[in-house]
């Protein structure tokens, strides 16, 4: 069946059709973001050439939005949360799998509870807590929430992986006289490198794309993330199509570049290990 050229053509036909469905909306937005308003409406599928070409949209984005600031905020929040999730998650998973202590199993269960219970359900109390701590409209609040949100899945994946790792290397490190701390940082951390990509992907996407917590915990102009910034910007400029299209393109491009660079590791990370049936 697999060598049959006809069915092979049908298969590629389906795949190409679906690729078009996935890509066309994004391309359409990108192409039209470089056109004048007239061009956008008169000829939406034409390439932005000749008299259709215009960068007016990007000029409005530059003039009226603070996108470099939003990107900086998103980047800061995502990266710090990610480092905390990976480091603290790996430490906890190591502690849970390596040592036998009272309440070990229960603690492990408690820590992965959050996979099933979305943290958004605690928003009401979370906002009150941050008001008390004086952390509303700070990036710190977002980092803390996203770290708490990301830890359960990270601990789960790291634990599953560490269970399958042989203890011999660690034991020989102990014989060499390494302290328990050095064993973690010098032996275990390098060992779990293959799953770090997986955990990073699972944690990163929801943080970068989240609208809920930025909207509620840090809506201020100075602490806006890209996702919230886009939402607010477009809310104000609904009639300015060039500006809206340009803002959307500005939001897509950095993610696209990162994806093109990392897609191999990313997809290998998702399909390997972590989610075995």
């Amino acid at each position: 069946m697999r060598s049959n050229p006809l069915s092979s053509m049908a298969i590629h036909g389906v795949l190409i059709l679906y690729s078009a469905l996935a890509l066309f909306p994004l391309l359409l937005i990108a192409i039209n973001s470089f056109k004048s308003k007239k061009g956008i409406f008169r000829d939406p599928t034409a390439l932005p050439l000749g008299e259709l070409y215009s960068t007016k949209g990007y000029q409005s984005v530059l003039a009226n939005g603070d996108f470099p600031l939003y990107f900086g905020n998103s980047l800061t929040v995502t990266l710090i949360s990610l480092v905390l999730i990976l480091l603290l998650g790996a430490m906890a998973a190591h502690g849970l799998t390596e040592y036998r202590f009272k309440g070990n199993g229960l603690l492990g269960l408690y820590l992965i509870l959050g996979i099933m219970v979305p943290i958004r359900l605690g928003t009401v109390a979370l906002l009150e807590l941050f008001v008390k701590l004086g952390l509303t409209n700070t990036l710190t609040a977002l980092v803390l929430v996203y770290t708490a949100q990301g830890l359960p899945i990270a601990i789960f994946i790291f634990t599953e992986f560490l269970k399958s790792v042989s203890g011999e290397i660690k034991d020989s490190a102990r014989i060499d006289g390494l302290s328990e701390y050095r064993i973690f940082f010098e032996v275990v951390l390098p060992l779990i490198r293959p799953v770090i990509a997986t955990v990073a992907v699972f944690s990163m996407i929801p943080i970068w794309n989240d609208l809920w917590f930025p909207l509620i915990l840090s809506p201020g102009e100075e602490t806006r993330t890209v996702t919230l910034g886009i939402q607010q910007f477009i809310g104000q400029y609904t009639v300015n199509w060039s500006a809206v299209l340009a803002a959307l393109t500005v939001a897509i491009v950095p993610v696209l570049i990162m994806y093109v660079i990392f897609s191999k590791q990313l997809i290998r990370g998702i399909t390997a290990g972590a989610v075995k049936g």
């Binding site: 905390l84 603290l88 998650g89 430490m91 906890a92 190591h94 502690g95 849970l96 603690l107 408690y110 820590l111 509870l113 959050g114 219970v117 943290i119 359900l121 605690g122 928003t123 009401v124 109390a125 979370l126 009150e128 807590l129 803390l144 929430v145 770290t147 708490a148 949100q149 830890l151 359960p152 601990i155 701390y181 973690f184």
Partner: peptide
């Protein structure tokens, strides 16, 4: 040292808010 930081952040910013809600 290994277990406390994750447990602390997770308890204060994920579990406590849900219980408090």
């Amino acid at each position: 040292f290994f277990v406390a930081p994750a447990t602390l952040i997770y308890t204060v910013f994920a579990i406590y808010p849900i219980v408090e809600s």
